[in-house]
Design a protein around this nucleic acid. Structure first.
Lengths: 321, 321
DNA sequence: GAGGGTTGTGGAACCGGTTCTCCAAACAAA
DNA sequence: TTTGTTTGGAGAACCGGTTCCACAACCCTC
């Protein structure tokens, strides 16, 4: 039988309330302190978390809503979150939504019902339903990757990242290119990243760019390849590494050499980008995860933006001149 | 203010106990059933999970102990687990241990303290401390990937997988090869996989194989490459895709062509194996995760072994004759 | 030495459910 | 009409903590 606070109190010859005070840092005389100390050590007493939560209406759980569990950025961010949380004595509760908005909302309510101490939301987009749920449940929420008025968020500066990468490829002499992006419903990746990229292009002269849209999977990118018009193009800029990887597979199969025949870039710096020699933009996912955990637990602390992304130069971009 | 069972009872004009019975399928007359039904709908009443758990000494949480969050096999297995759990009304609690045995043990106790309904343990190995913890905490535990007497487990048939892959490369005419494995402390990958592979080799004639040991990271494999003696070898068999990928990077940088100059194989069928054209052994991680969740929740159900692994033929193995 | 502060402790109420015991009403059988 | 048997529901106790309040003991001060 598990020992309870009443057992401890009995063995130490004091009242429950005294033991509770001892545990929570209230005043207790040195003498009783020692007695309780001893009993707790002997019995290996550990408080029952429900009983605590029942009164406190709070848990040591932090919920994370994630659109895809098996994604490089997600799992690395998760790792960062978990590290921080563990250090602060919190546990990680996960809900994988498989990119379904309904399930995101449902998870939000479900977490709230479990009285989690906070929620980290890695949404694909923030809809009206999201906002309603966020307002209704009274739990600190932090959105990672997507921002929206009235919702605390931690976002990468995707506009800048896009701009920087475009600057780089322009510097390499590329003027005729293809940009393969994703739906603008995804503000961070679909909108900001592209906007930054295009802004740099507009500042340059004699630039032509064709746009194609796909989703986040490697397979879709791979399939899309055949509808691309490569005529005269020297570079394919992809909104994510996965897209770039899909393209590279297609390129490889057709004997088109990188960067000899065509250059390619990605965003994200997935682990494989290294072996594939893909020039891409590195995002500090793990640090961001830690920061997110920190922020959701202690919202009053100064809002910090995530560490900056930076270009990783590999060999998939040809220097033309 | 959140509505409680007492509120519902008050509004419906019945006692708490009656509402509780209504909720838990005890007998209630049609008349009162209707009244309570209505009140619950009006107030959107949802039971407080702590109060329930406090009495029941059980939660709807299932803990997963995982050595590395950012690994392909882990995240895919996790996905499978989460899917099944969600369907059964359970939540996923995760503890990333960063390959630390101490943290695995600690997580076990911590989960037990939270009264999780079950624990899925993806251990790197099962030590005496593991066994002690498993015995002490009275929670259903299922070990994935590693097996040990007295511990319910779900393991791939790695011996067979190793054997099958070796049979295949032998059939392709390879006789001089290198096997890059990991520590035998990892029974599944380090021991069984290798043993199966070697068993097939022993059944053939005139076979030579050199063994090298590394860890699970791509980087270590990449660094190991330089100490390999490739003289006369036609194939490198790697115990994981990550190892193979590290090798392929080194190979590529040195201009050694695959499979023209040398063949290579992996185990795991990570997502990138596809683009890289790596011939490897596919493991049904997601299905295994679902099965694990199922088994840990309903241990009495017949023990099933996980779906079989199978070779995925790509182009990293040369057919010699 | 009576009045006024501290300090430490015990007791009881409370959090929001579940479950056990007991009782009342309804109906059937004698 | 009396007795026996269901059936449905009320009430209280309980799960294991936290917190509020009252009170006793002690020290200080005028």
């Amino acid at each position: 039988m598990k020992t309870t606070i009443a057992d401890v109190a009995g063995l130490a010859g004091v009242a429950k309330s005294t033991v509770s005070r001892y545990l929570n840092g209230g005043y207790v005389s040195d003498e009783t302190r020692k007695k309780i100390d001893q009993v707790i050590k002997d019995t290996k007493y550990e408080p029952n978390t429900f009983a605590q939560s029942l009164k406190a209406k709070k848990t040591n759980l932090v919920g994370v809503v994630i659109p895809r569990l098996n994604s490089y950025s997600a799992s690395l961010t998760l790792k960062g979150i978990d590290e921080k949380l563990r250090g602060e004595g919190y546990q990680l509760l996960i809900s994988n939504t498989d990119q379904s908005i309904d399930r995101e909302i449902e998870s939000l309510y479900s977490f709230a019902n479990q009285k989690v101490a906070g929620i980290i939301l890695m949404a694909t987009q923030i809809t009206k339903e999201h906002l309603m749920a966020i307002r209704e449940i009274e739990v600190p929420i932090l959105s990672i990757g997507q921002e929206h008025q009235g919702v605390a968020s931690l976002v990468y500066n995707d506009e800048e990242a896009g701009y920087d990468l475009a600057q780089y490829v322009l510097g390499c002499g590329h003027r005729r290119m293809i940009y393969v992006g994703v739906s603008e419903a995804d503000v961070a990746v679909g909108k900001n990243r592209k906007r930054g990229f295009y802004r740099a292009l507009e500042e340059a002269e004699d630039v032509e760019v064709d746009f194609y849209e796909t989703d986040f999977s490697m397979k879709s990118a791979y399939r899309l390849f055949d509808s691309l018009n490569l005529e005269g193009k020297t570079l394919i800029a992809c909104a994510t590494d996965n897209i770039a990887l899909g393209m590279m597979k297609a390129l490889g199969e057709r004997g088109i050499s990188i960067p000899g025949d065509i250059s390619i870039t990605g965003f994200g710096d997935y682990e494989v980008a290294d072996i594939m020699g893909l020039t891409t933009m590195h995002y500090p996912y793990e640090e961001a995860g830690q920061l997110a955990a920190q922020t959701v637990l202690y919202p009053e602390a100064a809002r910090v933006s995530p560490p900056k992304s930076q270009i990783i130069f590999r060999k998939s971009v040809d220097i033309l001149k």
